[in-house]
Amino acid sequence: MTYKKERPGKAAAPKGHFKREYPFYLMMIPGVVFLLIFSYFPMFGIVMAFQDFSPLKSFSGSDWVGLRNFKDMLMLPTFWTVVRNTLMISLSKIVLRLLVPLVIALLLNEIMSIKFKRISQTVFFLPYFLSWAVIGGILRSLFQYDGMVNGILTSLGAERIMFLGSNTWFPVIAIVSDVWKDMGYNMIIFLAAITNVDPALHESAALDGANRRQQAWHITLPTIRPIVVMLLVLSLGSVLSAGMEQILLLYNPMVYESADIIDTLVYRLGLVNHQWSLSAAVGLMKSAISFVLVVFSYRIATKYFDYQVF
């Protein structure tokens, strides 16, 4: 990845650059081969979405059905609910996964005690290494009807809340727990970026009378903006991935209306009910929209934030 204002044109490439740079191309080969085998070659399976696919008949023996699977997908009674849930949960996660770690990174950067700072970083980063199976069990214990949180509420004289069976509370728990679990990762990236901010800028600002908040707002944030934009662009590609593992572990029929997402639908259709083609159609639709979103967000990032990967 580079960050530059001018795109290198073909004419700008000096003659013989390939000869000079061939070691880099060689180094790319394993990655490219990996990508071809595990990302591009399986794309052939997309044809499944246009067939009445049976693994026993393979691709060549399965009947072609045109767009019937996509029509069936749109006819699913829960389809639009699932799309809405996915967008709502996913967008909330994307925004909070940037904001919360950013705020924490800025605050940690202000801490003078190195020891406390390091302990805090570790504590914030630890949940990232826990699996959803473990966190799912903890969340159930905390939020079930006779769980710890309701125990506290009743001891304070409040009514119990059916957190995991409520279409209002379930998405909140899903979003907050996801942000809590993964915030450490982005926080480390932001902290690294903040460390690279030239101290002279802060010193100059301080001499001009800027307080810590003003320095953060006018110096730190603009300086690390490319990193924030990069993380945003990367995460927009997964806007239709709202966290299958987490939802699958926590949801139940009472909250299908607010918690069923595209990935859980694909899982049920494909692996549980063996409706391979319909499942592939939903998956393809998801990939196509994600692709458009990545291109769109990249264009926006290039135009307004001067950010380029290619």
Binding site: L76, T78, P253, Y256, E257, R268, L269, V272, N273, Q275
Partner: peptide, 21 residues
């Protein structure tokens, strides 16, 4: 059945739960 049984089953379970509640 292959195409709709899971959808119908989900629909029935949801209806029953919502009716009871």
């Amino acid at each position: 059945e292959q195409r709709v049984s899971s959808t119908l089953s989900d629909m029935a379970v949801t209806f029953i739960v919502e009716y009871i509640m």
